[in-house]
């Protein structure tokens, strides 16, 4: 046990002694703050009539977005999830790229324990990224909603449940990143996969899947959809035409956990336990 705890603190030290974590955290905060603040202003403006519906090309779509706060707050995970994935993937692939697996495995020869320690560490730091993302979506987005006279629902238990589930989702995404990094140790390839999948492939798949009921059920198991189900709200579910019910929050959480476990276990076998040359 002490060996595991030492390994976890060493993994924390690895993250916090390089610059990547705070660069990603700053970009995350800025990105989510801009998006949540901007869209909070737009939606709240339309909903409260400050912005005339005639001025907006909604294509005959809704001008009532339902309860705005959860939608705005969920940007923390529905858009921000790529950041913990990147941090996790870079933490793992960096070990291959900079050949630091050698000193790591010399200091702690039990490799499974090291990978476990890395996962635990990144789950906690991923949740920390969740705090940063929520500070942006709730702090800035909620502030803008209040400015438009929309109740930011900061007293509501629902809001704080969403906050808690967002932290869990962000932690699990970081674990998926660790697993992916072990699965695809080439750092450039790993980054390309993360960006292409999260920004392009999965949104398209979710959209395509949503048109038929049967594919929509399968689409619910895509990692992004599972994450949104866990958090309980997302701009993507709002945009889904077929209207199939998403997974329950706990099912979404288990699906995410499943992705993380599968990627990590396969990654352990294909790269982590191999010869370090």
């Amino acid at each position: 046990m002490t060996m595991f705890l030492r390994s976890v603190s060493a993994e924390f030290a690895k993250i916090f002694t390089t610059r990547l974590w705070w660069i990603l955290a700053i970009v995350l905060f800025g990105y989510i703050g801009l998006l949540a603040g901007g869209l909070a202003a737009l939606f709240a403006g339309i909903q409260t009539g400050v912005i005339s519906p005639d001025a907006v090309n909604t294509g005959g779509g809704p001008t009532d977005f339902g309860s705005l706060p959860p939608l705005i707050y969920s940007f923390a995970s529905s858009v921000g999830y790529v950041f913990p994935v990147l941090l996790g993937a870079l933490a793992t692939t960096g070990e291959f790229r900079h050949q630091t697996l050698t000193p790591t495995f010399l200091a702690t020869p039990r490799r499974g324990l090291v990978l476990g320690a890395k996962t635990v560490t990144l789950v906690l730091i991923g949740a920390g990224f969740g705090v940063v993302a929520l500070a942006a979506s709730v702090g800035i987005g909620g502030g803008v909603l209040s400015a438009f006279g929309v109740d930011a629902l900061l007293q509501g238990a629902e809001t704080w449940l969403l906050v808690a589930r967002t932290l869990l989702a962000m932690g699990l995404w970081a674990a998926i990143g660790v697993g992916l990094g072990a699965l695809v140790p080439n750092q450039v390839a790993s980054i390309v996969i993360v960006l292409a999948f999260t920004q392009f492939v999965e949104p398209l798949l979710r959209l395509a899947a949503s048109f038929l009921e049967v594919t929509a059920k399968i689409g619910n198991f895509l990692p992004g959809a599972a994450s949104d189900a866990l958090v309980g709200a997302s701009v993507f579910t709002m945009a889904s035409p077929a209207g199939t019910a998403p997974l329950d929050w706990w099912q979404g959480g288990l699906v995410l956990l499943g992705y993380a476990l599968i990627a990590t276990v396969i990654g352990y076998a294909v790269s982590w336990k191999r010869d370090v040359t």
């Binding site: 030290a13 690895k14 002694t17 960096g94 900079h98 050949q99 630091t100 050698t102 000193p103 790591t104």
Partner: peptide, 15 residues
Amino acid sequence: SFHPGRTARDHLGVY
């Protein structure tokens, strides 16, 4: 076998 962005002290500190 080191991360180029880490200082020597931090590199050894990790291990």
